[in-house]
Amino acid sequence: MNAALTVPETSTITLIVNGAAHTTTARTLAQWVQQQGLESDAVATAFNGQFVPRALRADHALAEGDTILTFQPIEGG
């Protein structure tokens, strides 16, 4: 069983988000994206270094110390 699932829903965990510490009550990657006020299709996400497709974010439970990276469109050459 994933350690995150044993943590009470109201408690916080600390993640590393885009290189900085971040506390959250979210328990899945999908919940975390929603808590940031982001539309689900506004960013692409990586969880512990691996790309996570939009449709699979709800399947990724968060645990203390996990890393999240978010990417957004920018100009490019």
Binding site: V17, N18, G19, A20, H22, Q36, G37, L38, V43, A44, L69, T70, F71, Q72, P73, I74, E75, G76, G77
Partner: peptide
């Protein structure tokens, strides 16, 4: 076009 890792959360 490109992609950028967001520098700060949120």
């Amino acid at each position: 076009v490109g992609l950028r890792r967001q520098l700060a959360q949120g």
